[in-house]
């Protein structure tokens, strides 16, 4: 170890262990409140974020395009009905 740190390895190890415990509790608590739902957004109302330095939010060319998603409250996606079928949790081909 070349670190001239006053923090002991033991402190770091215990903080790391505690942090891992903490994030797993958090993950269970809020397990993502939204899901990506494909094929339900109207033209220009999609939420997707693509590629470094770009955003494709709001660029969807046609209504209910199965290649674009919108974030919706968890558990509601597949129940959404559109003129082109229900929402999908995976990209529609």
């Amino acid at each position: 170890m070349t670190t001239k740190s006053g923090l002991t390895k033991a402190t770091l190890a215990s903080s790391l262990a505690a942090a891992i415990a903490l994030v797993s509790v958090q993950a269970q608590a809020d397990a993502k409140k939204t899901e990506k739902c494909y094929g339900v957004a109207l033209k220009g109302h999609n939420d997707c974020a693509a590629g470094a330095g770009t955003t494709c939010a709001g660029t969807q060319p046609i209504d209910y395009d199965g290649h674009y998603f919108k974030l919706v409250p968890k558990g509601t996606c597949t129940a959404m009905k559109t003129p082109k079928g229900a929402g999908s949790l995976t990209e529609k081909m």
Binding site: K9, I20, A49, G53
Partner: peptide, 20 residues
């Protein structure tokens, strides 16, 4: 710019040594 953030599972691959 968009970037994919490292998630909480990243902590599991770290050790006290690598953390320092």
């Amino acid at each position: 710019a968009d970037a994919a953030p490292l998630g909480p599972e990243t902590l599991a691959v770290l050790s006290a040594e690598s953390l320092a």
